[in-house]
Design a protein around this nucleic acid. Structure first.
Lengths: 246, 246
DNA sequence: GAAGTGTAATTGGTTCAACCATTGAACACA
DNA sequence: TGTGTTCAATGGTTGAACCAATTACACTTC
């Protein structure tokens, strides 16, 4: 400080925004989404026209569209009837974001299995209350497919069908938060299993059959118990394999 | 079908990928992250150099970097010591992705409150088992700040401090999946509350005090019960406001 | 020597003007 | 009717240039 008499201090000052142009553009488009002025299926004007409207170069505008595309808000299609279309959000960005965290090593296998027990148990409970006939049919077809894959020794297909079971169950709850979360947990599990290698076990399929019976009977407590028991066995199985594998 | 003798069908054919250049670049960089060749804090070469290495123009390379930046994997800094730095993932992309879903209307308030009950209850249970002295101190300071904000009638600060309580509790579990998920749920709650307006209530703070006592005593069952009861009351409160407000 | 000051180098941000590649629809033709 | 062709629209990519922020460093000043 040089002169106390002229020093006015810096309180009340904030760092200037210095927001990049493409961020401001993406913000404005997001705003129209939140306000309902833009809804799923709508098409934005062509890039050249949008660039003119925002008074930026086409490159800068493209970076803004790229940001929205990665966030899963718009889909870009080439060709005569192409353009930027507003997507009906399916949560792909959130799923990819969690999968990236796992890839970065921020999430360790025991965190993943713990979260799966928490979410999976409550998904089973809610699904048994809300499942419709169509959900039950889809789940039964899934278990049958798993049995067939096991019979012909196709372990890769078996793993995929198992992930799909959890996704179907989550959809039966009708809660999109649980659906997205389950999808993300399965995506992380897939990465994890790819790393340690899939090892078949004998207790999952019988558990599935018991779970289906509870779902059919709408016995929420029994369904939750069955799922929790199965996931805890799976946790010991996975973490054992991880401990030996690392 | 014209000639059954020459018709071979289309089974086994799949649409060709036609991946865009920037996607392939982002994939390669992601791969290095997953393999551990790149880790948090590392700096990628300057854009001009990278563009040369991938044999693409600088614009295309920038779209790849933009994609990685939006995904939260890298951070771009200007200036002499600038460049693309690998970020220590904090899950911002996943959080933003879920918040976008809420903004798009795919997630309705009852879905949000249901998920909060499930996650919050189990977070309280795990936190009471694993909390350390520092967690307890931070939570106590938070509750004190909430009481002060209430005393001076600052409802906006009060709301923020309340969200922070749940985030702190999630951190005490030590599970990054639960941390990211809680952050995302709080972010969605903030949007929701901003829309319907914050209305103070009298039962949250007493519940906080009881919860702190359970945490201090490491009584997991009581902590979970307290949190679940509070969240269910909050659910009725919020949904009631939403029902009248829409 | 310590602290401030100016300057140059580095690097991301943006612009501009092209051209390429894909897509779908209009259209001609058998 | 259907089949192939042409063409306009639109996103994808390129390359060169300049702007703007940031840092490192030599230089001055006390």
């Amino acid at each position: 400080m040089r002169g106390a008499a002229t020093e006015a201090g810096t309180r009340g000052f904030r760092p200037v925004a210095a927001r990049r142009a493409f961020e401001e553009i993406a913000r404005q488009i997001r705003e129209r989404l939140a306000s309902g002025a833009l809804k799923a299926g709508d098409r934005l004007p062509p890039e050249r026209e949008l660039a003119g409207a925002f008074a930026v170069s086409r490159n800068t505008l493209r970076e803004a569209l790229r940001a929205l595309e990665i966030a899963g808000l718009v889909e870009l299609r080439k060709g005569a009837a192409g353009g930027a279309f507003i997507r009906a959000g399916g949560g792909e960005a959130a799923i990819a974001g969690l999968a990236d965290l796992f890839r970065l090593g921020a999430i360790r296998p025991e965190h993943l299995t713990e979260a799966r027990i928490i979410v999976g148990t409550e998904v089973a409970r809610l699904a048994s209350r809300r499942r419709r006939a169509a959900d039950l049919a889809a789940l039964e077809a899934n278990v049958r497919a798993a049995e067939e894959a096991t019979a012909r020794g196709d372990m890769s297909a078996r793993a995929e069908i198992n992930y799909e079971f959890h996704r179907l169950l989550a959809r039966a709850t009708g809660n999109p938060v649980l659906i997205v979360l389950t999808d993300a947990l399965m995506e992380m599990t897939r990465h994890f299993v790819n790393r340690i290698g899939y090892r078949p076990n004998r207790y999952v399929l019988p558990s599935r059959r018991r779970l289906l019976a509870h779902l059919k009977a709408r016995d929420a407590a029994a369904a939750a118990r069955e799922m929790e028991t199965m996931l805890r066995r799976l946790q010991r199985w996975h973490l054992g394999a991880y401990g030996r594998g690392r």
